[in-house]
Measured scan of single mutants.
Amino acid sequence: KKSYVLIKVKNPKTKETHTIVVPEENLEEVLKALASQPNVKVVDIERFP
Rank of each mutant, 00 (worst) to 15 (best):
N39K: 04
E28W: 14
A33S: 09
E24C: 09
V22Y: 02
L6T: 04
I7F: 01
F48T: 06
E28A: 12
K41D: 09
E24L: 09
V9E: 00
R47E: 05
K15H: 12
K8A: 03
S36R: 14
Y4S: 02
H18T: 09
E25M: 05
N26C: 12
V21G: 02
L31D: 00
V30Q: 03
P49S: 09
Q37N: 13
P23Q: 09
V30K: 03
D44R: 14
K13T: 10
Q37W: 11
I45H: 02
N39H: 10
H18D: 04
V22S: 02
K13N: 09
L31H: 01
K15N: 13
V9T: 05
K2A: 07
T14V: 02
K2S: 07
E24M: 08
P12M: 15
E16K: 14
D44C: 13
I20P: 00
D44V: 12
E24R: 06
E16P: 01
V9F: 15
V42M: 03
V42D: 01
L34Y: 04
K1V: 09
S3I: 12
R47H: 08
E29I: 09
L27F: 05
D44K: 12
Q37H: 11
A35D: 04
V21A: 05
K41T: 12
N39C: 09
E25N: 05
S36A: 12
D44M: 14
P12F: 15
E25K: 05
A35L: 14
P23I: 08
S3D: 04
E25Q: 06
V42Y: 02
T14L: 04
E16C: 15
S3Y: 15
T19E: 06
N39G: 10
P12R: 15
V21I: 12
V22H: 01
E16V: 11
T14D: 03
V42N: 01
N11M: 05
I7T: 00
E29R: 14
K1E: 10
K41P: 02
V42P: 01
E46T: 14
Q37E: 06
E28T: 08
Y4A: 02
T17M: 11
K10E: 12
P12G: 13
P49I: 10
N26H: 12
Y4G: 01
D44S: 14
S3W: 15
K2N: 06
E28L: 12
D44N: 14
L27R: 02
V43R: 02
T17P: 03
L27A: 04
V40C: 11
A33H: 11
R47Q: 05
K1S: 11
P23F: 12
N11F: 09
N39W: 11
V43Q: 04
V22W: 03
A35E: 08
V21D: 01
P38S: 10
E25T: 05
L31W: 02
L31A: 01
T19Q: 06
L34V: 03
N11L: 05
P12W: 15
L27V: 05
K1Y: 11
E25V: 05
N26W: 13
T19Y: 14
D44W: 15
V21C: 14
P38H: 08
E24H: 05
E29T: 09
N26D: 13
E16N: 06
F48Y: 11
T19W: 15
N11K: 03
V40D: 02
T14Y: 04
T19P: 02
K41Y: 14
P49Y: 09
K2W: 07
E29L: 13
V21Q: 05
E16L: 10
V30H: 03
F48A: 07
T17S: 06
E24F: 10
I7L: 06
Q37D: 13
E24P: 04
F48L: 12
V40F: 11
N39S: 06
V42H: 01
V22A: 03
K8L: 11
L27E: 02
P12N: 15
L27H: 02
F48V: 12
K1N: 09
E29P: 04
T19H: 08
K32R: 13
N39L: 06
A35R: 14
E28R: 09
N11S: 04
K32A: 11
K8G: 02
L31S: 01
V42W: 02
L6A: 06
I20W: 14
T17Y: 12
V22M: 03
S36V: 08
K13H: 12
Y4F: 09
E28D: 08
S36C: 10
V21S: 05
H18R: 14
P49W: 07
K32D: 04
I45T: 03
I7S: 00
I20Y: 15
Q37S: 09
R47G: 04
P49E: 13
L34D: 00
K2E: 07
N11T: 04
A35V: 05
E24W: 11
P38K: 10
T19M: 09
T19K: 05
H18W: 15
A33D: 05
Q37C: 14
E46D: 07
P23K: 09
K13P: 02
K13R: 12
I45S: 01
A33W: 15
T17W: 13
D44G: 14
N26F: 12
E29Q: 12
I7E: 00
T17F: 12
P38T: 08
Q37M: 12
S3C: 11
L6N: 03
V9W: 15
V9C: 07
P49G: 08
I20K: 02
A35K: 12
V42I: 11
P23L: 14
E29D: 08
K15E: 10
K41G: 03
F48G: 05
K8W: 15
S3A: 13
K41N: 06
K32V: 05
V30D: 00
P38A: 08
K10T: 11
V42R: 01
K13D: 09
N26P: 00
E16F: 10
V40G: 03
Y4M: 05
P23V: 07
S36M: 14
T17N: 04
K10N: 08
K1H: 11
V9G: 00
Q37L: 12
L6Q: 04
N39P: 02
K10G: 04
R47Y: 13
V22R: 01
K32I: 07
E25L: 04
N26M: 13
K8N: 03
T19L: 10
K13C: 10
K13Y: 14
V9N: 00
N11A: 02
E28F: 12
R47P: 11
K1L: 12
S3L: 12
L27S: 02
V40P: 02
K32W: 13
V43E: 04
K2R: 09
L27P: 00
K2P: 05
E24T: 08
I45C: 08
E46G: 07
I45F: 04
S36Q: 12
L27K: 02
V9A: 02
V43D: 03
N39M: 06
A35M: 13
L31G: 00
N26A: 09
L34T: 01
K41V: 15
T19V: 12
L34G: 00
E29M: 13
K8E: 02
E24D: 05
N39F: 09
E28Q: 11
V5P: 00
I7D: 00
P12L: 15
N26K: 12
A35I: 07
